[in-house]
Design a protein around this nucleic acid. Structure first.
Lengths: 337, 337
DNA sequence: CCTTGGCACTCCGTGCTCCAGAGTGCCAAG
DNA sequence: CTTGGCACTCTGGAGCACGGAGTGCCAAGG
């Protein structure tokens, strides 16, 4: 359907357009890439590519630019993932290694990605539901109020305040704390709900109302903010020129957690990295942008996702390379921390 | 030096320019504000105002626009703080009351401010150094590693991991935890350094190296990230048109914590609200923007600052009103939480 | 002394034409 | 299937005229 040369032409068009940001014509194509044919031949090929929907012209007698479909083909079959240079890899490693807590890891990651790709970076905090409990802490704040602190094995710390129905004694707090730690330590958060259900029935009657309040807050914490925390960086990399409807819409989208959630979405298949191009994007108002995402995690477990967002006209091979590399190093850091 | 009418003219120019975003001429001035004089008179006044540096013309024979100096006079003497409507006040209160932890309070505050003012909102987390310790928690993560969790009376939770020089026993951890809580509970964080200094000397020799490691991390936590956490929202409200050098520079600045710190700065005097206009701004690259900030805190103590940032051509009275109102309610919420 | 109407002047922004350049599609020949 | 030739189309910038908005100045009037 598309012979070797036509594919080469498409590849060349994508590369040129990505780097120059201008529609590319048949003449400049044969010049810049040593295709051993004449411009006229290329024009024929381009006519076919256009007919099939891979490229388009902004107006008659202008050069061609790739369509979403064209980028898709490019990503799937015409270009691989461009590995980072050794220097870049070392830079990533040392930069991330310097982080001193989870917040800092995430912050550094988002900066790193933004800087490497010159795009907007998006990093999700390690998901609560996929982590395991490492410690539960109860701190009395007032007679009828506790602070609940939940520490996971990924270093994440969740805090909530708990309103109690009755005054609680110091001793009861300690008892409850010990009980919780004994039963929950090491449990996956998905299993916690079940364990807590059993616990509730074994409580002495005196403490039951208070314990119930604590339990329900724990469950809430797990349900509610599950995957919520997502950090964005490098918004300054958004070039106004790239977004016809103005980048206001894009900036707005980037401030909504729900939108970001959708953006990161789920990994589509088992492949290393997911690319969503233009209108493939689940978020309206973010057509016109492409998103490159991947999982990261400690060894076997996928904890969360990260990626970059930019104009459809982005350097996919490089972006993919940066995303997978950063994901791998973040995983390492988290595993070792 | 400037009579009543000239001030009125300046005030009118600022208001018109802020609302229309276009240079304002003598004719439209007398029309829109029922000044009972002729355009020619206004022109004379404007000539004086221009000579004194309060207004300027983008080019010969265009209308006038205020200079930074003009806005300054406007803010200082010509306009007050515009109080919010009752509906807005109620909206603030209910919206903030729904927050369930410190992160959420800050998040909601930043959204609120951005929405109320249609500008970029900036909110600083309650400063560590001005808070008091409520609880210290040590969680063993590995043989030679602890997680340190520091909870303050403003609800802030700081966590750090501590590398120990030697293996530590469960009992030692408990002992250390109890010691820390006994000595630090209720202390202002500024006093903690001193207390810890004394503690270090009283340790039994066996635990001393480990304790020292913990102590140094506590001190680091207080010094290092002191005022660091600052949240930005409403970046989408930045209109590209407002920033001649492109808003890329502005967006970049907004991602740097150091810059944000400088932006919020210190309250200049005892007045409720600080306004920095254009070049008064301490941050290069953010000339061309104005910043309206104020303290917030629980009752007597000022904990941190918040504010909004926008083009010099912003609606100062409304912005000031929103900033002080939000600051007051946030203070209330924190005091009650 | 301040205010006012009149008037000439300046400059911006718009709309217009014109032109060069880049790129195309098509065709006929190799 | 490839190629050179050719006529065609469209954009973008330069040049130009023009209306409009706004100014500064001046001389007259309160």
């Amino acid at each position: 359907m598309l012979d070797e040369r036509k594919l080469a032409v498409l590849r060349a068009i994508v590369r040129d357009y990505v780097s120059t940001m201008e529609p590319v014509g048949s003449k400049s194509l044969v010049d810049r890439h040593h295709l051993d044919v004449s411009p006229a031949t290329i024009r024929n090929d381009m006519a076919v590519l256009e007919e099939q929907g891979y490229i388009t012209q902004p107006h008659t007698s202008a050069g061609r630019i790739p369509t979403d479909k064209g980028y898709r083909l490019f990503v799937d079959r015409l270009a691989g993932i461009k590995p980072l240079s050794g220097a870049e890899r070392r830079a990533i490693e040392t930069f991330l290694a310097r982080a001193y807590d989870l917040d800092d890891v995430v912050l550094r990651t988002v900066r790193l990605l933004a800087q490497l790709t010159r795009q907007v970076a998006v990093v999700q905090y390690p998901s609560l539901t996929k982590s395991a409990v490492r410690h539960v802490e109860l701190v009395p704040l007032a007679d009828k109020r506790l602070l609940l602190v939940l520490i996971t094995d990924t270093g994440r710390v969740e805090q909530r305040s708990v309103e109690l129905p009755e005054t609680i004694a110091e001793a009861s707090v300690n008892e409850l704390r010990n009980l919780l730690n004994a039963c929950l330590d090491g449990q996956r958060l998905t299993e916690v709900a079940e364990v807590i259900g059993q616990l509730a029935e074994r409580m002495t009657t005196a403490d039951r109302p208070n314990a119930a309040a604590v339990f329900s807050v724990i469950l809430e914490t797990l349900l509610d903010r599950n995957e919520e925390r997502i950090v964005v960086g490098g918004a300054a990399n958004l070039a106004p020129a790239d977004f016809s409807q103005g980048l206001r819409e894009v900036l707005e989208s980037l401030e909504e957690q729900v939108v970001l959630m959708h953006l990161l979405g789920e990994s589509v298949d088992e492949s290393a990295v997911t690319v969503r191009i233009g209108a493939e994007n689940p978020v309206v108002g973010l057509r016109g942008t492409s998103v490159v995402t991947t999982d990261y995690g400690t060894g076997d477990r996928a904890l969360a996702r990260l990626g970059v967002l930019g104009p459809t006209r982005m350097d996919y091979p490089t972006a993919m390379g940066a995303v997978v590399a950063v994901a791998r190093y973040v995983g390492k850091i988290l595993a070792g921390a």
